[in-house]
Design a protein around this nucleic acid. Structure first.
Length: 466
RNA sequence: GUCCCCAUAGUCUAGAGGCCUAGGACAACUCCCUUUCACGGAGUAGACACGGGUUCGAAUCCCGUUGGGGACACCA
């Protein structure tokens, strides 16, 4: 039996957690769940210039909102500089690394020359044999000039690079802080990570890291590089493509399970199945069914998924969710008993695509009386709507306001007037909501209750008088 | 430019040599249901990038071309 799998999500707090990062986190989390392993979180804040506290908070909050809970205390790289420095010192002592005093101006000159010769920039090894001891100089690791370094990607199969295309890269900066490729190796080893699942943009970093694992005598973990998520223009997802941060989707009213389903199906598949519960996802997830090709983020399908989930999530959960994340927006529900609000959610949830729409509809049911405006109707409709409403009042006054009774009365009323139910229903709908769209009429009326309905109709009639 | 990865409809994808006259989903369109809007139901249209191989047989394997993406930092 192989050892327990340990995976990690390792974002850098230099920006909000974007949707691509969220999916990387999700896949790691699912992989951990599917294999009975651990999911860890590591904050890669070695770049003290660009890292910000608020971004770390955003990452935590995004993952918590999605329900991707991590199993151990988060690790901050900024708290481990001593560790990286001592590993670097060990490398120096073994002659595997050396100090370099090339200035950025010198490096830029080389870079410019390379560009001119249409070659990629590679550090030429200027300081390799100089034996520099200046403690403020950067430290570079020695990379073999010949041979190749390869690995078997769990998603893509064998990938290999010629060592001559690599170079002696910097592991410790002038201020003795570690660079990404260095701290990743040390941390993944220290955390006993068994599988590294990350974006495809890291494939090129992998050989450098593997070489370092070997010179450090560390066991090399398995790697799986996920395809990227692209914007509608097929370029890397960025702010230009609308929502940049994961939490913005919460603000747009998407349920976390909707985003999770959508993200899971972006690059991964399970036959023809589109809708999954969290448990189903955890059980079905496997690396073999992750595709290799990049995927375009299409909001249409997310919207559809959003609607599906609004329908599937139980009323009680939606009620709690509103209280948790939209308490300000749903202040107007405060005085209603939970069962009443849940009943309201029940008649709306199948018709809306997201939480924002749900709140709006709940507002029609439980909020303040709408502002009735005759401009909401075609001018030609006004007289008949007004007349139907005036007549309907008498019918409704005698009702016990159960939806069955309401329906039979309004149908009878329409029959008496020798018109179809449609105009009656539309008139009453306007009279109660001020608009033309609502949940099912009779159940809505029942939920509103007699007093409120009659009051609103009176207001509507008043508004229609010219 | 160099290196790496990728390539089924507008989009997400199924497909591991014959089960494919290529399946599902979103979006589009048509019709049905209907008290509105949705939902739901029934349909229509739409794809294996191209060229060579290998094979009795290729969407599936190999090579090339083209196209797309990514990486080329004292960012991660």
């Amino acid at each position: 039996m192989s050892k327990t799998t340990r995976v990690r999500f390792a974002p850098s707090p230099t920006g909000f957690l974007h949707i691509g990062g969220a999916r990387t986190a999700l896949f790691n989390w699912l992989f951990a769940k599917a294999t009975g392993g651990k999911f860890l979180l590591r904050i890669e804040d070695t770049d003290t210039e660009r890292s910000e506290e608020r971004f770390t908070k955003d990452i935590f909050e995004s993952l918590q909102w999605l329900g991707l809970h991590w199993d151990e205390e988060p690790v901050y790289q900024s708290a481990r500089f001593d560790r990286y420095q001592s590993i670097a010192a060990g490398l120096m002592a073994k002659g595997e690394a050396y100090r370099c005093r090339c200035t950025s101006a010198e490096l830029d000159a080389i870079r410019a020359e390379c560009t001119k010769q249409k070659r990629p920039f590679r550090y030429p090894g200027t300081c390799r044999e100089k034996g520099i001891t200046d403690p403020g100089a950067v430290i570079r690791v020695r990379v073999p000039r010949t041979g190749e370094t390869g690995f078997t990607d769990l998603i893509r199969g064998p990938i290999s690079f010629k060592n001559q295309d690599l170079d002696d890269w910097v592991i410790l900066r002038g201020n003795q802080s570690p660079t990404y490729n260095f701290s990743v190796v040390v941390d993944d080893h220290d955390l006993a990570i068994t599988h590294v699942l990350r974006g495809e943009d890291h494939i090129n970093n992998t050989p450098k890291q593997i070489l370092l694992y070997r010179t450090l005598g560390y066991e090399v973990p398995e790697f799986a590089h996920l395809p990227m998520i692209l914007g509608p223009d097929r370029s890397k997802l960025s702010k230009r493509h609308g929502a940049a941060s994961t939490l913005e989707y919460r603000g747009m009213g998407f349920l976390p399970i909707a985003l999770i389903n959508f993200l899971a199906r972006l690059g991964w598949s399970h036959g023809d199945q589109e809708i999954f519960t969290l448990n189903e996802l955890q059980a079905a997830f496997s690396l073999e069914h992750i595709g290799k090709a990049n995927a375009v983020f299409g909001i249409d399908k997310l919207n559809w998924m959003g609607g599906k989930m609004m329908e599937l999530v139980p009323q009680g959960e939606l009620f709690d969710y509103l209280g948790r994340y939209f308490s300000v927006e749903t202040q107007f529900l405060k005085d209603y008993p939970k069962p009443t609000v849940e009943a309201g959610i029940g008649i709306i949830q199948g018709k809306v695509k997201n939480v924002l729409d749900l709140i709006e509809q709940l507002g029609c049911l439980f909020g303040e009386d709408p502002v009735f405006n005759r401009a909401a109707l075609k001018e030609a409709e006004v007289p008949s709507v007004k007349e139907i409403l005036e007549g309907a009042v008498a019918e409704l006054e005698g009702s016990d306001f159960s939806k069955g009774d309401l329906e039979s009365r309004l149908r009878a009323y329409a029959a008496k007037k020798q018109i179809k139910l449609t105009p009656v229903a539309q008139a009453v709908r306007f009279g109660v909501t001020g608009g033309k769209v609502s949940p099912g009429l009779f159940e809505m009326l029942e939920l509103q209750g007699k007093e409120r309905v009659l009051r609103r109709i009176a207001l509507a009639v008043e508004a229609l008088k010219s």
